[in-house]
Amino acid sequence: MAKWGEGDPRWIVEERADATNVNNWHWTERDATNWSSDKLKFLLLGLSVEAEEGKCEVTEVSKVEGEASINNRKGKLIFFYEWNLKAIWTGKNKTSTLGC
């Protein structure tokens, strides 16, 4: 640990009277749950995979539960997320129609 007054010059918060978190040097956290929930629904709904054997398409996203956050420490972004998703899909192969 540095002696008083011999610290890293990047720690400019100590020199500020208002103690502002300049350039997000210290830990900041933002909730991204609503944005990522909407984005997951948007990306999954209508998702289609097609191959020689057949085709599968997501028709409904029935459950999106969880949370997400974006953290910033010393200018580096750190993402935390945990999701539980449930989707309904239909599929067709060469001989029959499938669904779940």
Score class of each variant (00 low, 15 high):
Leu47Trp: 13
Thr97Tyr: 12
Asn21Phe: 05
Lys74Asn: 14
Arg16Trp: 03
Lys92Arg: 13
Lys55Val: 11
Lys92Val: 05
Glu15Cys: 05
Lys55Leu: 07
Glu15Phe: 08
Glu53Tyr: 09
Glu57Met: 06
Ser96His: 06
Glu15Asn: 15
Val49Arg: 14
Met1Pro: 11
Leu44Ile: 02
Glu82Leu: 06
Val49Asp: 08
Val22Phe: 15
Lys76Asn: 12
Leu45Asp: 10
Lys63Phe: 01
Leu40Gln: 04
Arg16Glu: 06
Tyr81Ser: 15
Thr97Asp: 15
Thr33Asn: 02
Arg16Ile: 03
Gly46Lys: 01
Ala51Ser: 15
Leu98Phe: 08
Trp89Leu: 04
Val61Trp: 02
Gly91Ile: 00
Thr95Phe: 09
Arg73Trp: 15
Trp11Tyr: 08
Ser37Asp: 06
Asn71Leu: 11
Asp38Arg: 10
Leu85Asp: 01
Phe79Ile: 14
Gly91Thr: 04
Leu43Thr: 04
Lys63His: 08
Glu67Asp: 14
Asp38Asn: 14
Arg30Gly: 08
Ala17Met: 10
Glu15Thr: 08
Glu67Asn: 10
Asn84Cys: 00
Lys63Ser: 09
Leu47Ser: 07
Ile88Gly: 12
Glu60Ala: 14
Glu67Phe: 14
Glu60Gly: 05
Leu47Met: 12
Val58Leu: 02
Thr59Asn: 02
His26Leu: 13
Leu45Met: 12
Asn23Ser: 13
Cys56Glu: 06
Asn93Val: 00
Lys41Trp: 10
Cys100Gln: 14
Val58Ser: 00
Glu29Ser: 13
Ala2Arg: 03
Gly75Leu: 04
Ala87Gln: 10
Lys39Phe: 06
Leu77Thr: 09
Trp89Lys: 06
Phe80Asp: 15
Leu45Thr: 08
Glu82Val: 05
Ala87Lys: 04
Arg10Thr: 05
Cys100Asp: 15
Glu57His: 02
Val13Ser: 11
Asp31Ser: 01
Ala87Met: 11
Lys92Tyr: 04
Val49Ala: 14
Lys94Ile: 07
Lys3Ala: 03
Glu67Thr: 05
Ser62His: 04
Gly46Tyr: 01
Arg16Lys: 13
Leu40Phe: 07
Phe80Pro: 03
Lys41His: 13
Trp27Gly: 03
Trp4Cys: 04
Leu47Lys: 14
Ala32Trp: 10
Leu47Ile: 01
Thr20Val: 15
Arg10Gln: 11
Ala51Lys: 10
Arg10Met: 07
Gly46Glu: 03
Trp35Met: 13
Ser48Tyr: 00
Glu53Gln: 13
Phe42Glu: 10
Glu57Trp: 03
Asn71Trp: 05
Leu43Ala: 12
Asp8Ser: 01
His26Arg: 12
Gly7Asn: 00
Asn24Leu: 09
Asn93Ala: 04
Asp18Ile: 03
Ala51Thr: 15
Ser48Arg: 15
Glu52Val: 15
Lys76Ala: 03
Thr33Phe: 04
Ile12Cys: 07
Ala19Asp: 12
Leu45Cys: 07
Ala32Gln: 11
Thr28His: 05
Lys76Tyr: 12
Lys94Asp: 09
Gly54Ala: 02
Ala68Ser: 07
Ser48Trp: 02
Gly91Asn: 03
Val61Phe: 01
Asp38Cys: 11
Gly54Tyr: 02
Thr20Cys: 03
Ile70Asn: 06
Ile70Lys: 05
Ser48Pro: 00
Lys94Ser: 11
Phe80Trp: 09
Glu67Ser: 10
Asn71Gly: 13
Asn84Ile: 01
Trp4His: 04
Asn24Tyr: 07
Ala68Leu: 00
Ser36Asp: 07
Ile70Leu: 08
Glu82Tyr: 06
Val64Asp: 03
Cys56His: 08
